[in-house]
Amino acid sequence: MITTYIILFYIKDIPNHHFDWYLVRFNLEQQIKIHGTYISLWISIAFLFITDYIIHLKKIKLKYGLIILQLTSLMSLIIVNSRMILFSTILLSFLQIYFYFHKKIKTYKLIIPLLLTTILISLFSNRYKDDILFLYKNSIKDSSRYTICYCSIETIKKSHYLGLNNETIQEKLNDCYDKYGFKELSKENINSHNQYLDFFLKGGLVLFISFLSILLIKLYKSFKTKNFLYFLITLLFTFSFLTENILVRQYGIYIYLFCDILFLGSILGNKSHCCDKIEKS
């Protein structure tokens, strides 16, 4: 439903956005009152679910219908334009196909369409072209993303890697933005835009290592048990955390917990409990 709504809204809103991708996302967020990152996460997770279902499905006619649904999902992801999530979804969906068909399909047959898809989407949206042009004409140090990351790391160092009071973090980041001439960032109270750095700022080295360890354990366990869908969804979050503070809002926490509730028990089963049941029976 959400993918159809996004596509219809995009078409209806053409007189307002005139194919400007920045305005498209802004207008959409104003309409549905949800940040584009969280919309993209839900769609991306659904995309991986459906891809997994298509892979195991034997009814060919139903597959065609689901493939059409996947195409509408991809279109909506392009419209919302959360770059990291969009490209992660493309990469992970190809990886998903590889996991199940690696014995039948040669690797290069997947790499070539993956590269072509990535290039086409990059050329299709002016958001990516603007980024490429900016980096061509300017140093990466002149970008706001670099400054946000640099100021976050500087603030972490000044806290001696022990974390800070949550109420003072934004103030210290704003001081750093102003120091390097990015006053528009401080005016908008831009946070670290990186979940790893956000936890490092709030809880220091202990929270950072704990959070990273949880992700690595889930990746290891899901891959070892061949629960590839959970492995790929965890990878999706791992990539998304690099560019957004997903877990600072309820939307992000709900999505993250929803996936863990569905899958975590399947990779952390209590073997001793199972054995006890067999012995008693």
Rank of each mutant, 00 (worst) to 15 (best):
I54Q: 03
S240C: 01
S122G: 03
F211S: 10
F9R: 03
K104Y: 12
I105K: 06
K158N: 15
Y53K: 12
Q195A: 01
I190D: 01
H18L: 15
L235C: 14
Y53D: 07
Y64K: 11
Q30R: 13
Q195M: 04
Y150Q: 14
P113T: 06
S186V: 02
D276N: 14
W21D: 06
S152C: 05
K59F: 13
Y196F: 14
S93Q: 09
C149I: 14
I39G: 05
W42P: 04
L242H: 10
C149S: 14
Y150P: 00
S88L: 06
G204F: 00
K63E: 08
S40D: 05
I97W: 09
F228D: 07
I246Y: 10
S125I: 12
L262F: 14
L91H: 04
C151K: 07
I68G: 06
S144P: 05
M1H: 05
L162P: 01
I55C: 00
S266H: 06
S240W: 01
L164G: 03
I7V: 15
S88F: 04
I111V: 15
L216G: 08
H273G: 13
D13M: 14
N81M: 01
E167G: 00
G163L: 07
Y177I: 06
E167F: 09
D178A: 00
I156F: 06
S186T: 08
L28P: 06
F200L: 13
T72S: 09
L264Y: 13
E244L: 00
G252M: 07
L236T: 08
F200Q: 01
S192T: 10
Q195P: 01
S240G: 09
I119C: 14
F208D: 04
C259N: 11
L135M: 09
F9P: 09
S73M: 11
S222G: 08
K224A: 11
I90H: 08
Y100W: 12
I55M: 04
I261H: 06
K202N: 08
D13C: 09
Y38T: 03
E167K: 15
L62A: 01
I261F: 15
Q31S: 13
M75L: 11
L8W: 00
T234E: 07
L215R: 03
C176N: 12
L247E: 03
T72E: 00
I156M: 01
Y5M: 02
Y100L: 03
G163H: 02
L95I: 15
K157I: 15
K157Q: 13
L212K: 07
I68H: 01
F9V: 05
L135N: 10
